[in-house]
Design a protein around this nucleic acid. Structure first.
Lengths: 246, 246
DNA sequence: AGGCTAATTGAATAGCATTCGGTATTTTCG
DNA sequence: CGAAAATACCGAATGCTATTCAATTAGCCT
């Protein structure tokens, strides 16, 4: 049939993609539930309603299936992070409002999907070739980079601030905090919630990277005043000089 | 024999411990070389020169063996970190010298033993009971805590600085930086070495937690210089004034 | 020495990812 | 449309490993 000829290439791809998605989502569920080693290919197959061997027509191995799941995961995070920053709550807000929103989103994500994130880095244990997801990670952290650069352009951030350091501090601190929180590592303070972590972080950024820290602004005022006085003195000197030479 | 009676309890324990150590070091080598999944119990047994089944008389399972290796690893780190801070190079030095030494040591360690550290957190995927090493982690990070508190006592650090935040920033940033470095994630700057990471970090700590932030000190110097110049000018003016009025 | 206990061993077991030969389903072309 | 060719699908068979266990050995005490 002509119809089939015209439609089939479409339907075929669509069908394949649908099946791929069903495998992927089944796999994601099983991996989240049992972890990598605990996940059984048989269970994934069962949940996706396909034969066990069929999976291998779509993914080379368990590790590569996991990798596909992780890539989808990180891509989703990237989209959500962008969405959070563009959300109405912070639209029109300055750099620090957006940063705060991003920090809250990231911290919460890391806490909720901690296992997933660990797996991202744990996967590159033996299968050294199967660790492609660098690009996806890069795309995710690029969300922060764009925000930071824009903040610099708009003059909200010091021009001499170092992007890579700020990025490391931001993601590093949040990730470590998340681990501390979920470990309830704190013998010192039993209630260590997410909010103070983000607040402290924003405060640090404001103080260290902000374009106009209070102390320095004050000093600037003092400097201006002194400069003006110098100018006054210079003028007076000139006038005296002229008077003397006359 | 009385001798055997007196010695055997000692020798027996010693023997057991020696065998335990030999298993542990064999395991460590194999795990480092091949990762957790890649490691074969048979190879560990061979390297320890014992039968395959014997291992299970000492450790319940492969995961628990790994755990023992990890605990030994973290304990070693703790000792080394203390040693670095007490080393002659920084003896008598202030808080920031010690902090710098600790940061350099930690960053280097994390880069060199990155796989090991990942494994620490990746192990608690399925075997949720087998994740005891919290105490060992706690002991390790406590090295920083002691340094920080001492710095506060000596007045080198602001009294209102928050310990847990500083800790998160310190370890979090270093760990994340290490990952970035070993991933050579940087399309922006190909040569991102360890030194600048540590330097930036120390600078941040000095500025944000130090009792006398550097930026303001610099501005103070500028202010002083300007004030002096104004004084000079004033004196000159006065002299001229006197000459004129004479 | 010699009996008793605990330690050691490596062959047997069991669990799982991956493969493969056969079957069903789709596509192609006369 | 129909049959041949190609492709997708299946799940039992394979192969590889952690783990167990019955037999053997070494250590200990009187």
């Amino acid at each position: 049939m002509l119809v089939s000829k015209a439609m089939n290439p479409e339907t075929r791809r669509a069908k394949v993609e649908r099946k791929e998605q069903s495998i992927l989502s089944a796999a994601r569920g099983v991996f989240v539930e049992h972890g990598f080693d605990g996940a059984r290919m048989s269970e994934i197959a069962r949940r996706a309603s396909i034969g066990e061997g069929t999976i291998y027509g779509y993914y080379e191995s368990k590790a590569e299936l996991m990798l596909a799941v992780l890539q989808q995961f990180w891509d989703g995070l990237t989209l959500e992070a962008e969405a959070v920053m563009a959300s109405s709550r912070v639209t029109g807000g300055g750099f620090f409002d957006r940063l705060c929103a991003l920090a809250e989103y990231h911290l919460n994500t890391v806490i909720v999907n901690g296992d997933f994130i660990n797996l991202t880095f744990a996967l590159r244990r033996n299968n050294s070739e199967v660790s492609v997801s660098r690009d996806h990670l890069r795309k995710y952290v690029a969300v922060f980079d764009r925000l930071f650069l824009r903040g610099q352009d708009r003059g909200e951030i010091r021009q001499d601030a170092v992007l890579w350091q700020a990025r490391d501090v931001f993601y590093g601190t949040l990730e470590y905090s998340a681990r501390s929180i979920e470990m309830t590592m704190d013998a010192e303070r039993t209630t260590r919630e997410q909010k103070p972590v983000v607040d402290q972080m924003i405060a640090l950024f404001r103080a260290h990277y902000g374009a106009e820290p209070g102390a320095i602004a004050t000093d600037d005022v003092v400097l201006d005043r002194l400069s003006m006085k110098i100018d006054e003195l210079s003028e007076k000197l000139d006038r005296l000089d002229q008077r003397l030479s006359r």
